[in-house]
């Protein structure tokens, strides 16, 4: 019983962290009639999946989800394709570039986005890329790149250079040894980086808000924000359902990397 205050504190944290999530879930499962009640209920009286099917029935939402998917796929694949050779260079050749790249990761955190987005918007307008998905892909690639590079070069470092030297002795060219020796060993790192880039793009809101102003090309986060009109509570159910579905890719990502997260960051508890 000595631990009572600690348990009380832990419960308070759990409640604070969980209650908005439960409320989102509860709202997603309610009928419009129940939403309109003056006394909100925690547990839906007649839980229904109608909100989810309604969300799928919304032309805007489905189209936006597809566009988000396309943007995220292209962004992640392009990010990995261009950061693979660069990360190899960073890991294998010692140079200033390493430090410059890390410096850039930090600088891009400190500088407010407004300082970049205004000229970026003007540049994209000159290139006729405003209101287009390729424009957004270019921006997502650029801003995922520093971190993706950093992730990948860690994986490249973990591949012993002796393997490449052995391949070179067997007469393989540098390119050949990269393609058939290093690349296969990098597979887990590539998958992790792909997922990271995919999620960053799928979740991204700020750049999309500025670059995509035409509702016909908006991505999912933008469409979700525009979804609640002035009609009041009627559309809150489908909005909650769609929000939950929009979270699924991130949840999958975190479920996959959770092991790593645990062993890398949250571990040690077992060690003692």
């Amino acid at each position: 019983m000595r631990r009572l205050p600690q348990y009380a504190a832990l419960v308070a944290y759990i409640v604070f962290l969980a209650f908005p999530l439960l409320w989102l879930l509860s709202t997603a499962l309610k009928t419009p009639q129940e939403m309109a009640l003056t006394e909100p209920t925690w547990i839906p009286r007649e839980p229904t999946l109608a909100n989810f099917t309604d969300a799928f029935g919304e032309q805007d939402l489905v189209g936006a989800a597809l566009r988000s998917l396309i943007v995220a796929l292209f962004s992640s694949v392009i990010t990995v394709l261009i950061s693979l050779p660069a990360s190899y260079a960073m890991a294998r050749y010692r140079s200033l570039l390493n430090r410059v790249a890390l410096g850039w990761v930090l600088v891009s955190q400190v500088f407010p986005f407004i300082l970049i987005i205004i000229p970026l918007f003007m540049i994209l307008r000159e290139m006729d890329l405003v209101n287009t998905l390729p424009g957004l892909v270019a921006v997502h690639v650029t801003f995922t790149l520093p971190f993706a590079l950093w992730m990948l070069q860690g994986y490249v470092r973990a591949v012993p250079p002796e393997l490449e030297e052995a391949a070179a002795v067997d007469g393989a060219s540098r390119l050949r040894s990269i393609v058939s020796v290093v690349a296969p060993l990098l597979a887990p790192g590539v998958v992790a980086t792909l997922l990271f880039a995919f999620i960053s793009s799928w979740n991204e809101f700020m750049f999309a808000l500025v670059i995509l102003q035409n509702p016909d090309v908006m991505t999912l986060p933008l469409t979700l924000v525009r979804f609640t009109g002035p009609e009041g509570v009627a559309r809150l159910g489908p909005l909650a359902a769609a929000s939950l579905m929009a979270t699924i890719p991130s949840l999958i990502f975190f479920a996959i990397i959770q092991r790593r997260l645990k062993s890398g960051l949250m571990a040690g508890a077992v060690k003692g």
Binding site: W202, P221, L224, L239, A240, L244, A246
Partner: peptide, 12 residues
Amino acid sequence: PPVVIGLMWKLV
């Protein structure tokens, strides 16, 4: 996604 966090708290 940050947008979903915002919308969720709007519901709260």
